[in-house]
Amino acid sequence: MAAINHSKVKKKRFMSEEKKDRVSGYLYIAPFFIIFAIIGLYPALFSIFLGFQKWNGLGPMTFVGFDNFKVVLTDPLFWKSVYNTIVMGIMGTAPQLVFGILFAYLLNLAFLKFKNVFRVTIFMPYITSMVAVALIFSVLFSDHESSLANYVLTLAGLDPVHWGTSEWGTKIAISIMVFWRWVGYNTIIYLAGIQSIPNDLYEAATIDGANKFQQLFYITMPMLKPFIILTVFTSTVGALQLFSEPTVFLGTSAFTRDEAMTIVMYLYRDAFKLQSFGTASATAIILLVLITVFVAINTLIASGYGRKKRGESE
């Protein structure tokens, strides 16, 4: 009888409430970490390992050290892709942040009717299929003189542009596509930020005689600072990973032309067109370094702004 009671006590201690809570907590979060390790962590670590190997995807791997990085960094096409990525990123990202704030401010005005209709309309491009986007922009920016873009240029007294074949015509068309797809996404984020600003601030500013533009620049913009930093960060990372828009707009000729080649397109071409997975992985590592640099810059800007504001308040 004493032995039975002793075993019950040991079992009771082993299955204490604290330990059961801890085990159940680990079981709840385990699926996320398992899936992340399989489809996230392992491919990333394997890509870093592959950056120092020569491999065509089928045969044995050969260790080559930093030769893959030398090949990439001495390739003029890679630097062309870096230039294209930065130029199209700036042209497509900077306007959408500015217009996103303006659209969000307009959508939050009290006297505006059919707000929900406008909000859904401006968000629709973000959820539109890339196939539909390709069809729309292939018609809008056709090389033919009767295309809508060339027709507008003709009305303005300008010459038609070969959007699909010229250097800057291609960059401008792709940048407009990026702007069209993502401005609604940033608008919704800014709209959520504006709606979190207390109305008392606007009422006090109105009593003091501030007009709408003064309220926008002296109340809305400073209060939106965290949201602006977030969208600048995400937009910068997205711009450095630009891939879908150029490939969709240019179609089958996307990987054979230099004027719209981006870093991710260069990576994809090496891996799946040339079967050079070593240089493709080296390009991915270099892209990771570039993204990290931009993340560090954004973090320094955000922290510096915070210290400045605290210093002024003191």
Rank of each mutant, 00 (worst) to 15 (best):
Met124Gly: 03
Thr170Gln: 14
Leu158Glu: 15
Met91His: 04
Ala104Ser: 03
His162Gln: 13
Leu97Met: 14
Leu153Tyr: 06
Ala149Ser: 12
Gly164Leu: 01
Tyr126Leu: 07
Pro160Gly: 10
Lys113Phe: 05
Ala134Met: 09
Leu106Asn: 04
Leu148Asn: 04
Ser166Gly: 10
Val152Gly: 05
Ile174Asn: 03
Leu158Gly: 05
Ala173Pro: 06
Gln96Lys: 14
Thr165Ile: 15
Val87Thr: 13
Ile101Pro: 00
Pro95Tyr: 11
Leu112Trp: 04
Leu112Lys: 06
Thr154Lys: 14
Leu109His: 05
Ser147Asp: 10
Leu153Phe: 08
Glu145Gly: 02
Leu148Gln: 05
Tyr126Thr: 08
Leu158Ala: 15
Leu135Asn: 02
Leu97Glu: 09
Val117Glu: 05
Thr154Glu: 13
Phe137Met: 06
Val161Cys: 08
Phe114Met: 13
Ile101Ser: 03
Phe123Gln: 04
Ile122Asn: 01
Met130Ser: 11
Pro125Glu: 08
Ala134Ile: 02
Asp159Gly: 08
Ile172Tyr: 11
Glu145Ile: 14
Ala134Gly: 11
Val152Phe: 15
Pro95Phe: 09
Ser146Asp: 13
Val87Leu: 12
Ala94Asn: 01
Pro160Ile: 14
Leu102Ala: 07
Pro160Phe: 07
Leu135Met: 11
Ile172Cys: 10
Gly164Thr: 01
Gly89Gln: 09
Asp159Cys: 06
Asp143Thr: 06
Met124Asn: 06
Phe137Leu: 05
His144Glu: 13
Ser138Leu: 03
Ser138Pro: 00
Leu106Tyr: 00
Phe118Arg: 12
Ala173Val: 09
Ile90Glu: 02
Val87Glu: 08
Val161Lys: 05
Thr128Pro: 00
Met130Lys: 04
Phe111Ala: 09
Tyr105Gly: 01
Leu135Pro: 00
Leu158Ser: 14
Gly164Glu: 01
Ile86Tyr: 00
Trp163Arg: 03
Met88Ser: 01
Leu155Ser: 09
Leu107Asp: 04
Ser142Phe: 02
Val120Gln: 07
Arg119Gly: 09
Gly169Thr: 13
Met88Lys: 02
Tyr151Asn: 03
Ser142Ile: 07
Ser129Leu: 07
Leu109Arg: 14
Ser138Asn: 14
Val131Met: 09
Gly169Ser: 13
Ser166Asn: 12
Gly92Thr: 06
Tyr126Phe: 12
Thr93Leu: 08
Asn150Leu: 11
Phe123Gly: 01
Pro125His: 03
His144Met: 08
Gly100Phe: 00
Asn108Glu: 12
Lys115Met: 07
Val161Gly: 04
Ser142Thr: 07
Phe141Asp: 04
Trp163Met: 04
Val161Ala: 06
His144Leu: 07
Ser129Pro: 00
Val131Leu: 11
Ala173Ser: 13
Ala104Gln: 02
Asp159Val: 15
Ile172His: 08
Ala156Glu: 10
Ala149Cys: 06
Leu140Arg: 02
Phe114Cys: 08
Val133Arg: 00
Pro125Trp: 01
Ala173Ile: 11
Ser146Arg: 10
Phe99Thr: 14
Leu112Ile: 15
Asn116Lys: 15
Ser129Ala: 13
Asn108Gly: 03
Arg119Leu: 14
Asn108His: 05
Ala149His: 02
Lys113His: 10
